[in-house]
C-alpha cells in the first residue's frame, strides 16, 4: 500500500471512531431536547450519566482526524479550511457550546440556568452532526468545494443527524434498566433509523446531478447494498427487542457509511484541486505519522477499552 493510502486509511479509521463515539454523544443531545412524557427526567439523567465520563475522550477523535489531515495532506487541508471556512467556524462554535454547556449544566444547581444550558447543549448537538454530514456531502460533490446548500448537501446533513440519533437511541436502550425507559429509546431508535433511510434515499437521488461519477462507482455498489441491509436489520432487531444485536448492527451501519463515503471519494481529496498523491506530505513525514499511529493505537486503544469497560459495568449494574 502506498504510504499516503495507509495514512488515509488511518484517518478514515479515526473518523469511524469519531462518528461512533462523538456522534453518539451528539445523539444524546438530540434526545435530551426531545425528552418527553412522564419519564423525561429519567431520560435526561440516563443521557447525562452515559455521556459524562466519555465525551472528552470521544471528542479527541475529531482532533486526531484533523491533525492527521493537516500533517499528511497539508495543501489539501489549506484548501479545505479556506473553502469550508464558515461551516468549520460554526462547527467550532457548536463544539464549544456542546462541551461547555453540558458540563455547566451538570455543575449548576439553579434550575433556570440548567434549563438554558440544556437548550444550548441540545442546539449544538443538532448543529454539529448536521454540519458534519453536510460537509461530508459537499466533499464528494464533483464541483469546486463550497458549502452551497443543495438537496444533496441538506440530505447529507439530515442523514448524519438521524444516524447519530439512532446510534444514541440504541446505546441508551441497551443501557436503560427500566422497561418503560428502555421502550422509549427503542421507539426513538426505530424512528430515527427510518428517517436516516429516507434521507439517504433522497441523497442518492440528488447525487446523480452533483456527483455522477460517484453514483456510477458506488451508488449501486456494495456500500449502498450493505448500508440498506444493515439499516433494515437494525430496525428488525429493535422491533424484536434484541438490544445488543441492534447496537452492533447500528455500529456496523455507521462504519459502512463512513468507509463507503471514503471509498466513494477515492483518490480525490478536494475535487479539481488535490488528490491523495498530489497533496501528500514527504515520505519521511508519512512514515513518522504511521509509526506514531501504531504507537498511539497500542497505547490509546487499551486505555479506551479500560474506560468503556469501567463505565459499561456501571451501566450494566444500572447506576
Amino acid at each position: 500500500m502506498a504510504p499516503e493510502v495507509a495514512i488515509a486509511a488511518v484517518i478514515v479509521g479515526g473518523l469511524v471512531f469519531y462518528v461512533l463515539g462523538g456522534g453518539a454523544d451528539f445523539g444524546g443531545g438530540v434526545w435530551d431536547l426531545l425528552a418527553s412524557g412522564p419519564r423525561r427526567h429519567e431520560q435526561r439523567a440516563l443521557i447525562e450519566a452515559s455521556i459524562g465520563p466519555i465525551w472528552e475522550a470521544n471528542h479527541v477523535w475529531f482532533i486526531f482526524v484533523f491533525v492527521m489531515l493537516f500533517s499528511a495532506f497539508p495543501p489539501a487541508f489549506a484548501s479545505l479550511t479556506t473553502a469550508l471556512f464558515t461551516p468549520l467556524t460554526l462547527y467550532a462554535l457548536g463544539l464549544v457550546m456542546r462541551g461547555s454547556a453540558f458540563t455547566f449544566r451538570h455543575y449548576d444547581s439553579d434550575p433556570v440556568r440548567r434549563r438554558r444550558f440544556g437548550a444550548l447543549f441540545s442546539a449544538a448537538s443538532i448543529l454539529c452532526p448536521f454540519l458534519l454530514g453536510a460537509m461530508g456531502a459537499a466533499l464528494v460533490r464533483e464541483q469546486p468545494l463550497s458549502l452551497s446548500l443543495d438537496l444533496f448537501v441538506v440530505a447529507g446533513g439530515a442523514f448524519m443527524l438521524a444516524l447519530v440519533a439512532a446510534l444514541a437511541a440504541t446505546y441508551l436502550a441497551l443501557a436503560a434498566q427500566e422497561p418503560v425507559l428502555r421502550e422509549s429509546f427503542r421507539r426513538r431508535g426505530i424512528v430515527s433509523l427510518v428517517v436516516a433511510g429516507v434521507a439517504s434515499w433522497l441523497a442518492l437521488a440528488a447525487a446523480s446531478d452533483v456527483a455522477p461519477q460517484l453514483v456510477a462507482r458506488v451508488g449501486r455498489g456494495l456500500p449502498a447494498v450493505a448500508g440498506t441491509l444493515f439499516g433494515s436489520v437494525a430496525v428488525a432487531m429493535l422491533v424484536m427487542r434484541r438490544y445488543r444485536a441492534a447496537r452492533l448492527v447500528v455500529g456496523a451501519l455507521t462504519a459502512t457509511v463512513v468507509i463507503g463515503w471514503a471509498v466513494a471519494k477515492g483518490e480525490v481529496l478536494v475535487w479539481g484541486e488535490h488528490t491523495l498523491a498530489s497533496s501528500r506530505a514527504h515520505p519521511a513525514t508519512l512514515q513518522v505519522l504511521l509509526v506514531a499511529s501504531v504507537v498511539a493505537a497500542a497505547v490509546v486503544l487499551p486505555s479506551l477499552a479500560l474506560l468503556f469497560s469501567v463505565f459499561g459495568r456501571r451501566a450494566a449494574r444500572g447506576a
Partner: peptide
C-alpha cells in the same frame, strides 16, 4: 499531542 490528549481525557474520565 493528540496521543497525550487521548490519555488525558480517558484517565480523567476515570
Amino acid at each position: 499531542e493528540g496521543v497525550a490528549f487521548f490519555l488525558e481525557a480517558i484517565f480523567l474520565g476515570i
